[in-house]
Every structure is written in structure tokens, then in C-alpha cells.
Design a protein around this nucleic acid. Structure first.
Length: 793
DNA sequence: CACGCTCTGCCTGCG
DNA sequence: GCAGAGCGTG
């Protein structure tokens, strides 16, 4: 007894020591997260704290060893010799330790029992690649790793018939959704001016994110007319989706939750399959996704979520930061592990980022630290205008490229909005600096690409009226609006799809005359369906371009449509690439793949080029040198952010931007900004002011603009003759002097427009122009001497 | 039915 | 300042 107890002790010690040795490239906290395979686990992973490493190692660990680290059982018939050998194994190279451990591990887990939600496809692919290098290609490919949408689509394709979804259902993108909603509104007779489709879309989307059906939406609306209208549109919209055999992005999640709640065979399958569930970028999940996670994880309760509340930047899209802030309420027994050591950025950069984010109130308290040297200070710089700002960036890239022998791919330019890229692209081109822009117009959203995809969708799912409408007269086939409307009317009357009517046009007197044209179109589709049934996807794409006349149309347009032709042909190679990377390539699979890619998925850090993208896209990436142009009030934070919560989100965005950098950060701003065709003089961003002075190197005056006075923290603002901005704080300080002055943030009242809030104040020719966001009529610019603004009590 | 003119309305953006 | 939508005309 004595003997065996000490043997047990020795064995367990040796086993744990071996596991620790196996992961000695991780720190203690990271290792703990890897070993904690059972039960709910929240990993609060600060920026650059090795979150992905933990996630990958943990999954590999689960598959290989299960809960072996904490499992106190010992293998049967273990001898003291074996334990001695185990101890001796500590000196072996890691691969051999791994071998030895698998002999003694008490558990392992088939890869298909492991589920991991990632934020982008790119993250999922990277994860699979990293798993492949430790576990081998075959095992890695059996892990369920993907975005919420990918995983849900897999479940919907398999079990969706329960919900009435038939094979080959379509995914509606934002544009399809918008068009459908507009058409629903017209049907009901709701004025698009009074109720913008954009608002309706956002409302319906947020209802779906809250898992609310149209019925619940209507019940909640009560007497609220507007909300009742939205509920009506919601109902009709869902009806349209159902008829078209389509789902929108929000439905993919919502319907999956429904499926799991209502269909026993689905939930049984999932509970059986997903023994281990992990979620990356947990701070950006929404309510529906959280419910999905709970349903899936509640069988085995082996749920690990990783995230950083400070990097939650999708609130505007429904992400519920409460998911991460209140995880311990959903799972009171959750273990919490904080990863606070940053391995990415210099301590100056981290100090700057910490100091900015410290201004946020709603967050998990934590303090990231870096063991890297101080490094360079943050450079803060003001330029005269956006052209100068762009040139400044180009010049710095050249300088640092030569002096510090940097590659172009060391540099990233991260901005608040895509429209900021234009000037910078120009400057980089002129300076012959290779660069790539991520985002802007997404490839799959270009008209010509969407047109070809619409053909493919119709081939796959002829009932998709929306896509059919898109292409029935593209290229022109003399099928005009009048005729389409007639076909639509017949379709509604007979309960058929547009295609159903068009393919049988001769039987309807109303459109009998046009039957040949409609039937010609249907024959094109039928022929393509035949190709789809026998040939490859890429062949189908090529045939589509040829037989629909689309390619011919583009060719005949010559030079103007050269790019379009290229894009369309690019689609053929995309299809070929899809065929190569998938085991059972199908048209439906290709279309799904295409609907679910994001622009960041195409980012390839191997290419030696400067990269331009929004801060949102840069989440999860890192670069040696980061430029952040447009650090101005009204841009970053944007003019749309008003309440404290919006500002906190913007601040998190600033935090994300700064923490992307490993070695150097440039914060840039512009004195005179041309925006929406107007000149704006923005104040420096408050986030710039929040940088600690000792970590900042002020390079305020650009070489070109040195002869002109500039705004700076210390200097008084300049009063140039025709146009200049006065610091809002200044106005506030001088407030009570002569005529009443208002500061940014003040509540004011206007005779006609009513109450509102001052958004900006600009001195101009002795007068002050206030930009006021009125509660009822939106934002207006007013001259102080005319507007007769009063302070609102 | 196609073209061209005017009007509007603008962030970020999973998939 | 620019693109996309709506409207009127040839």
C-alpha cells in the first residue's frame, strides 16, 4: 500500500513534469489554460499575449492527451522501472517526450469531437495549418474549426430540411437583403423617405440577433406605429426568403439555434459530437451566438472562450460585450485565466495603449506588461492636409526602409474608414512603394462578379427570384421592367416562382407575346444546369460567361470593361482553386464559400508590400510599424459616436490600432480635411491626448508646413484669416464673455429645429459656425449670429 | 427601353 | 466628391 502510493506520487509528478517540459515554450498561465480541458474556462487574453498559441496547443493537447494532466489515475500494472524511465525522459527532445507521454496518457479525443469557433475564415485556416504541423494533415482536417456561419451552414445543410429548407438554398448578402426589404416596403406601401430601408435592415438584423421572430417583434411593438411597420416588413421579408429558399446572414445563426431547440435529432447529434467547444474572439460574439454556444456546450460543459473585452469593436453590429464581462454569471464555476504578458509590442507601445484604454470604465481590470525593451517613442505628427499626410507616410516608409533595412511588408497603415485610403494609395504609387488595399470594394461585391454569381445561383436554385431578376435582362434581352412586372404578378397569383412562370410563358395570355424571349432565357439556364450536372464547377463558370452573352457584352465594351472582364475570368480560377481545395466540390459548395468570404481572408502576409486596411480588419494581425492617419475628432472618434458607450468602443478601436504594432507607431492628423466635398478643421483626437507625454515624440510640424502655425497641445490655436478652428475647450473657457458661446457637447435650442447638441464649433470671419445635431432634424451647420441659439436648460 | 441628368446621403463591416 | 437611385426624355 505504502509502496504503491509513493509509486503513484512519483508517476503523477513525473507525468506532470513531462507535460510542463513539453510546453516549456509557454508561460505558466498559458500552460494552465492548455491543461484545463474540462469544464467552463474563460481566458482573458490581452493583446499579443499568445492567445492563438494557447488555443492551438490546447486543441492539440485535447486530441492527443485529453485530460491527462489533471487525471490522477495511474495506468494499470505500472512498475517502478517505468516511472524511472518516465523521469529520465525529461532530458529527451520534445518529440520523444510527446511519444513517451502518449503511452501513458489516460485519455485522448477524436478530432471530430472538437469544435472551435473563429472570427474569420483566415483564422480558421491558420488554426488548421498550425494543428496540421503538430498533429498531421489528416487529423487536423477532421477538427471542426470555422466561423459561426461556416459551422452553422454545415449543420443547416445536414439537418435543415426540418426547417423546410431544401437542398441548395441561397445565402442572401447585404445587397440582396436590402433589395428584398425595399421591395417588401413597396408592397406594403411604406414610404422609403419616412422609414429608410437601412434602418429597417438594422432593426430586423438586431431582432434576429436577439433571436426574436416577427411575431415577437409585433407583440413588443404594442402601439408603437413605427415598430409595428417594421414588424410587418419583417413578416413579409421572411415570407420572401422562405419562397426564395434563402437565408440571410443573421438567419444562418438564428435558424440554427431554432433547429437545435426544436429538432431532437440535431441536438442529439451535436451533443454527441461536440465534446469540446472553444470560441475565439469571444468579445465579439452577439446574443444569438452566445445562445448557440450555450446550447452546444451544455451537454459536456467543456467550454473554453478566449477574448479580450478591451478589443471588443463590433458593438455597432450587435456584439454583446456582456458575454465576456458576464461569463462568470452564465458559468459560476468557470475557471478564469488571465494572460497579461504581451510578447508583441515594446513596452513604450504597450504603455501608450494601456494609458489610452485605462480611460474606459466598463472593462475587466487588467494590466498588460511587456518584457521587451522600451523601444522607440510614439511619433505624433500633424500635417497640413491629407495629401501631406499621405506624403509623410510614403517618406517615412522610404526612410525607414533604407535606414532600418525594413521590408515593405513591415508597414501597415490602419485607418478608421475606407475612404481614407485614396490619398495614401496615390502617394505610395507615386513613390513607387508596393502596396495593397484590403477592403474597399470587395471582389465578390462587384457588379459583374455578382452578376455571374447570380447566374450560378439561379442554376443552383431557380426559385431565387431576386437573383433571377438581377440577370434576366443582363445582358439585354429585351425583357424590360414592364414584362418583369407582369411575370411577377402571374407568379404571385399562381404561387409560382418567376422562373416557373417564365419557363412556361406561352400558357399565360398576359405574356404570351413575349414567351420566346423568356423561354430563350430559361433555355440558357437549362443548358447551364446540364453542364452543372456533368462538368466541374470551373467549367460551369466558364460556360456561363460564354453562353449567357455576358463575356461578349464586356468584350464589346472594349477598354472600359477590361477590368470587369478580368474580374469575371478571375471567378473561373477561383472556382478551379475551390475544386482543388475541397474533396467533394459542388456548385452549392462554391457559392457558399463565395458568400462567406471576407476581404481579410485574402490578406497574405508573405507578399512584400505595404498594407492598407481599416482598424477593424486589422484585428488579430501584427506589424512592426503602424501608421494611424486621421487621428482627429470627427474621424476617430467618428462624428457618429456620441454617447459614452460609443466613445468607449472607439477607444477600444484605438487600443486595437496601437497594439497591432511591434516596434513603432505613428499617430497622424490633418489640419484641413476635405470631407464630403467640404473643408473641415478637426481637433486632435482625444485618444492622442490620452497618450502619456513621456512616451510621445512630438513631430508636430512637417517640413513643408513649418512656416505656418499649427495646432498643438501647448501652442495657442492659430487664427488664420479665412478659416480656422478654435478648440472647443477654449470656447467653453471663454464661454460667459460677450454673446453666448457654446462648447462641443452643450445642449442648445433653436426656434425652428428644436433641441440639439453642439457637435463642433468653428470660428469663421468673426462669427462662429456651430454644427448642431438636432434631436428631430439631424445635424445642421448654423452661423451663431443668425441662428439665435439658446442654452437648453 | 436606354441613356443621361439630378438628387441624396454618406463609418466601421462578421460572414 | 462621388456613387447609386430615381426620374424624365429621346
Amino acid at each position: 500500500m505504502e509502496q504503491s502510493s509513493s509509486l503513484t506520487q512519483s508517476f503523477l509528478q513525473a507525468k506532470c513534469a513531462l507535460f510542463e517540459r513539453l510546453y516549456d515554450n509557454l508561460n505558466e498561465r498559458q500552460r494552465e489554460a492548455v491543461f484545463t480541458t474540462e469544464g467552463p474556462l474563460l481566458v482573458l487574453a490581452g493583446a499579443g499575449s499568445g492567445k492563438t498559441t494557447v488555443l492551438v496547443n490546447r486543441i492539440a493537447h485535447i486530441i492527443r492527451y485529453g485530460n491527462s494532466y489533471f487525471d490522477d489515475r495511474i495506468p494499470e500494472g505500472l512498475t517502478s522501472d517505468e516511472v524511472g524511465q518516465l523521469r529520465a525522459a525529461l532530458s529527451l527532445p520534445k518529440e520523444e517526450i510527446a511519444e513517451v507521454l502518449s503511452d501513458y496518457a489516460s485519455g485522448s479525443c477524436p478530432p471530430w469531437n472538437v469544435l472551435c469557433f473563429t472570427f474569420t475564415n483566415k483564422a480558421a485556416n491558420e488554426m488548421k495549418e498550425r494543428l496540421a504541423s503538430t498533429l498531421g494533415e489528416e487529423i487536423a482536417s477532421d477538427v471542426w474549426a470555422g466561423t459561426f456561419h461556416k459551422i452553422c451552414m454545415r449543420l443547416l445543410r445536414r439537418f435543415g430540411s426540418f426547417l423546410g429548407l431544401s437542398d441548395g438554398f441561397t445565402i442572401y448578402d447585404t445587397e440582396d437583403t436590402r433589395k428584398t426589404i425595399v421591395s417588401c416596403m413597396r408592397k406594403i406601401g411604406i414610404d422609403e423617405k419616412r422609414l429608410p430601408p437601412k434602418t429597417v435592415m438594422a432593426e430586423i438584423s438586431s431582432m434576429k440577433n436577439m433571436l426574436k421572430s416577427d411575431r415577437e417583434c409585433r407583440e413588443e411593438a404594442g402601439k408603437d406605429f413605427r415598430r409595428k411597420q417594421i414588424a410587418d416588413i419583417y413578416t413579409l421579408y421572411q415570407e420572401r426568403l422562405r419562397l426564395a429558399n434563402a437565408l440571410d446572414f443573421d438567419d444562418i445563426i438564428m435558424q440554427t439555434v431554432r433547429l437545435l431547440r426544436e429538432d431532437k435529432s440535431t441536438i442529439d447529434y451535436c451533443r454527441r459530437t461536440f465534446r469540446y467547444v472553444s470560441v475565439d474572439e469571444f468579445q465579439d460574439t452577439n446574443y444569438a451566438q452566445m445562445q448557440l454556444i450555450k446550447i452546444l456546450a451544455d451537454g459536456h460543459r467543456n467550454l473554453m472562450v478566449v477574448g479580450d473585452d478591451d478589443q471588443s469593436i463590433y458593438r455597432f453590429r450587435g456584439a454583446a460585450i456582456e458575454n465576456i464581462l458576464g461569463f462568470d454569471k452564465s458559468y459560476p464555476d468557470a475557471k478564469v485565466i488571465r494572460l497579461e504578458q504581451n510578447y508583441r509590442s515594446t513596452s513604450n507601445i504597450l504603455g501608450a495603449a494601456n494609458s489610452v484604454i485605462a480611460n474606459n470604465l466598463s472593462r475587466h481590470q487588467k494590466r498588460l506588461f511587456s518584457s521587451l525593451p522600451a523601444g522607440e517613442k510614439i511619433t505624433v505628427h500633424a500635417c497640413e492636409n491629407q495629401i501631406e499626410e499621405a506624403r509623410y507616410i510614403a517618406r517615412k516608409i522610404k526612410e525607414m526602409g533604407i535606414r532600418e533595412r525594413r521590408k515593405f511588408s513591415d508597414f501597415a497603415i490602419l485607418y478608421r474608414m475606407n475612404s481614407q485610403s485614396g490619398f495614401i494609395e496615390q502617394a505610395l504609387s507615386r513613390a513607387a512603394i508596393p502596396h495593397r488595399v484590403i477592403g474597399n470594394v470587395r471582389f465578390y461585391e462587384r457588379k459583374e462578379v455578382k452578376d455571374i454569381l447570380a447566374y450560378l445561383t439561379v442554376v443552383n436554385n431557380p426559385n431565387d427570384d431576386l437573383r433571377l431578376r438581377r440577370i434576366i435582362n443582363e445582358p439585354k434581352r429585351k425583357i424590360g421592367d414592364k414584362l418583369i412586372t407582369d411575370v411577377e404578378r402571374l407568379a404571385a397569383m399562381n404561387g409560382k416562382s418567376l422562373y416557373g412562370i417564365a419557363s412556361d410563358a406561352a400558357s399565360y395570355p398576359l405574356i404570351f407575346k413575349s414567351a420566346p424571349r423568356l423561354e430563350d432565357f430559361c433555355n440558357i439556364i437549362k443548358n447551364l444546369q446540364a453542364v452543372a450536372a456533368t462538368g466541374s464547377v470551373s467549367e460551369l463558370v466558364r460556360t456561363t460567361i460564354e453562353t449567357t452573352g455576358y463575356g461578349e457584352m464586356l468584350e464589346s465594351e472594349g477598354e472600359i470593361s477590361k477590368d470587369k472582364l478580368e474580374n469575371v475570368n478571375e471567378l473561373v480560377s477561383d472556382a478551379a482553386a475551390y475544386e482543388e481545395t475541397h474533396e467533394n466540390p459542388t456548385l452549392a459548395g462554391f457559392l457558399e464559400e463565395v458568400s462567406l468570404v471576407s476581404d481579410i481572408d485574402s490578406y497574405d502576409d508573405e507578399k512584400n508590400a505595404v498594407v492598407l486596411m481599416t482598424i477593424h480588419s486589422a484585428k488579430g494581425l501584427e506589424f512592426p510599424v503602424v501608421f494611424i492617419p486621421g487621428m482627429e475628432e470627427g474621424i476617430f472618434p467618428g462624428s457618429m459616436s456620441q454617447d459614452a458607450e460609443d466613445i468607449e468602443e472607439e477607444r477600444r478601436l484605438a487600443y486595437v490600432a496601437i497594439t497591432r504594432a511591434k516596434e513603432k507607431v505613428f499617430c497622424l492628423r490633418v489640419i484641413e480635411r476635405l470631407i464630403y466635398g467640404r473643408v473641415q478643421n478637426n481637433l486632435p483626437s482625444r485618444f492622442m491626448e490620452e497618450l502619456p507625454e513621456e512616451l510621445v515624440e512630438d513631430e508636430e510640424l512637417s517640413a513643408q508646413g513649418a512656416n505656418r502655425p499649427m495646432l498643438s497641445k501647448q501652442k495657442k490655436p492659430p487664427i488664420s484669416k479665412e478659416f480656422s478652428t478654435v478648440s472647443a475647450l477654449k470656447i467653453s473657457a471663454d464661454g460667459g464673455r460677450s454673446t453666448e458661446k457654446f462648447a462641443v457637447g452643450d445642449r442648445v435650442r433653436h426656434n425652428v429645429f428644436g433641441g440639439g447638441m453642439v457637435m463642433s464649433a468653428t470660428e469663421m470671419g468673426g462669427d462662429t459656425i456651430y454644427e448642431v445635431a438636432f434631436d428631430r432634424v439631424g445635424t445642421k451647420k448654423l452661423m451663431a449670429s443668425f441662428a439665435k441659439l439658446k442654452r437648453e436648460e
